[in-house]
Design a protein around this nucleic acid. Sequence first.
RNA 1: UGGGGGAUCGUCUAGUGGUAGGACGAUGGACUCUGGAUCCAUUAGCGGAGGUUCGACCCCUCCUCCCCCAGCCA
Length: 577
Amino acid sequence: MTESSSKRPSDFIRHRVAEDLKQNKNEGRVLTRFPPEPNGYLHIGHAKAICINFGIAADFGGLCNLRFDDTNPTREEEEYVEAIKEDVRWLGWDWGDRLYYASDYFEQLYEYAVQLIKKGRAYVCDLSADQIREYRGTLTQPGKDSPYRGRSVEENLDLFKRMRAGEFKDGSRVLRAKINMASPNLNMRDPVMYRILHARHHRTGNRWCIYPTYDWAHGLEDSIEGITHSLCDLEFENHRPLYDWFLDQLGVHHPQQIEFARLNLTYTVLSKRKLRELVEGKHVSGWDDPRMPTLSGLRRRGCTPEAIRNLCERIGVSKTDSVVDMALFEHIIREDLNKTAPRVMAVLRPLRVVIDNYPQDKVEEMDAENNPEDSSMGSRKIPFSRVLYIERDDFREDPPKKFFRLTPGGEVRLKHAYYIKCVRVVKDKQTGEVTELHCTYDPQTRGGWSSDGRKVRGTLHWVSAAHALEAEVRLYEPLFIKPNPEDEEGGSDFKANLNPNSLEKLTSCRVEPSLQGAVPGSRYQFLRHGYFCLDTDSSAGALIFNRTVSLRDTWAKIEKAQKKGQKNQKFLSPDGQ
RNA sequence: UGGGGGAUCGUCUAGUGGUAGGACGAUGGACUCUGGAUCCAUUAGCGGAGGUUCGACCCCUCCUCCCCCAGCCA
């Protein structure tokens, strides 16, 4: 047992697994599985399922299988198999040599179906899909028996064999379990086990033209692999009686299905169908668009697998429908990157600054620590010269209260460099826009310190104009404008809540020269901005950075509160009411 | 008006007969060459009504609200 299993079980599933172990159920074995259908990309909701299945196995000294549930050839593709494997691996989990496919069990599943027919517990039904629906009844009314329900075992065997042989057209017949058409649980009203689909399967080719349904196949897949705990989401709770029924009828190894609530996150959608809609409707650039909650999107955005695993750990496991605040996820990403990301200076919206009293051709190499949280990450040199760029937002000609940055006549510190004072503001005569600042520096403050005990409130980041690298920076905001994208009253759908400003591309950014040769996927903290990741579209000559998450911005909060205060002030009547 | 689940601070989650705890958020403060980080404090909760009990978030009854199920999807 690992250390974590000696701790108190932390959620209801672990409690049950611990209890099973105590009872020596399954001879003390724990074997779980993650069973994705290869019909799309994995998202952070899947990450929760992955972490639960692999995590619980690991906690109890067990194993977890990776199994592709490829029972529907009309929607599945090989392309997704590789992407899913990559994502699970990236998240940090290992299925060893236990990579399985439901399609590997097709022959065995067929044999089990024959057994069920022989027991008189399954029959071939000639009703059309529409008719089956009519016969099923409704939530409040019982269904009625199919006219084919009474077929003899021999006839069923013959028909089923001919279904497999390809004698019948798609949709003309199905194999059904014979259970109870009056069951209050609709899943028990003679569910379909096999449908005829003359479709090429990505692994079995044209060998089969009948394919098992989820309900029929899933429990048996689990059983065949010797799974002990089959962990899935709440929507399958209604299916558990059927899961149990098939296994009991066949008398085979019977895993315990346990359901938990799926992950929901504010400001995004987590369903393959909706994510596909965003991709196909070109609302995003693809499955790996950095705004997508897919694992490939999060990876490209700069999110670490550790952060995702931490999130899954911290949100817990329960049966309550819940929506996790995106702010928690962002907090966890910052927490991770704060410790690991090297600091670097980047000016996103450059404003030219000339240091009037600094020699024309002089260049100094300033020392800069790479990460104040971790001295082992060392330091680097940053060139300082007469002409610099600072952030446009870091200068205000008419500063509001508590503005600690550069102002006319004011003094600030340039990080790792010198104190500077603004002596002149140059503006565009037409627009009035500030185009350049003239400053003086204090040579006595090299490195950013002064010996006279002078206090400087503001510290700005900067780059040397002559040495800086040009870069494109992509800023991301939530994909949706509402915490719940589904909250739409106008009769349209979640896409009406798409955030038109979810992507902002800044093209004339300047970054410090140490970023020369950075490798795509590398993560940095841009000082005072946030965490950024070099995009896979980058090349040596064209740096492109994705903002993973911004830093906490206390000033933005103060300013917002100030503006709000002013507004309220305006609406107050003269006597203050 | 069938069946299956669920309900604890704004959010997520512990506790399951004996002082309702943590995390995120929010707010305030300390500190700081990142208005970052860190630290401290404050905020705020057992859906409702009865009952059992010395004592109920926990047990019982009733009620309310929310989610899932009528695919030959998974």
